[in-house]
């Protein structure tokens, strides 16, 4: 066994292989997309998020593939930003349900709509990745398909279609991936109830009482000693 490294060196985060490349990426993408690039977020030592306008979703796909050289598509999916009207199944079912937040708050790079599509692409020779997002209009729930950009988007879009009800214009075959054809509803939408959790609430959430001999603390501030 070798001795433990010095503690002060461990706190410094070493640079990612692509970190030096990261700076110019957003500017190059802005040059290719212009105003269609709505918002960006670059977190040092972490990642890049960009949001493009709905109309430019496919154009953005071509731009990251051709301009930035992102040849590898990792995944494409969607997010429903509406807070769940059912909570997380942690309340006592005999009591009336508590007041829940209903405001739709989008995450990184903001947004205006309830649904957003997001995709992650990589450059396999430059070793960086980028996460793209786009709003899905609330009234029509249609974005352009990425199948002409990355053929692998086919299955990912089928999955997003059946789980969120988002349509992808130009997709060759939007059949259900997992669910039966006659299935009603879109399971990953927040207003789709997880019935198993409503019928019988999960008891795990109350399993946070303090250990014997530990001062009671409701806000989770009590820390545990390292168990080494």
């Amino acid at each position: 066994m070798v001795p433990l490294p010095e503690t002060d060196t461990a706190t410094e985060t070493p640079a990612l292989p692509g970190d030096a490349l990261r700076d110019g990426i957003v500017e190059r993408l802005r040059g290719a997309l212009g105003d269609a690039l709505v918002d960006t977020l670059v977190k040092p030592n972490d990642d890049i998020w960009v949001r493009v306008s709905t109309a430019a979703w496919r154009e953005a796909g071509f731009a990251v593939r051709e301009t930035l050289g992102c040849d590898f598509m990792s995944y494409l999916s969607a997010i429903d930003w509406m807070p769940s009207p059912f909570g997380r199944g942690e309340e006592d079912p005999t009591e009336p349900p508590p007041e829940r937040a209903t405001a739709i708050v989008q995450g990184y790079t903001g947004g205006e709509t309830r649904f957003q599509v997001l995709a992650r692409v990589y450059s396999t020779n430059k070793h960086f990745g980028i996460t793209l997002k786009a709003d899905v209009p609330d009234d029509s729930l249609v974005v352009e398909s990425w199948v002409p950009v990355y053929a692998g988007a086919n299955w990912h879009e089928r999955q997003a279609h059946e789980m969120f009800g988002i349509s992808f214009a130009g997709h060759p075959d939007l059949r259900n991936m997992y669910l039966p054809t006659e299935f009603e509803g879109y399971p990953l939408r927040k207003d789709f109830p997880l019935l198993a959790r409503i019928v019988k609430p999960w008891p795990g959430i109350v399993d946070v009482e303090p250990l014997p001999g530990e001062p009671e603390s409701a806000d989770g501030e009590a820390t545990e000693e390292a168990s080494a």
Partner: peptide, 9 residues
């Protein structure tokens, strides 16, 4: 050690 200091909750 094999565990960093993390909150219990």
């Amino acid at each position: 050690p094999i565990m960093a200091k993390v909150p219990r909750i």
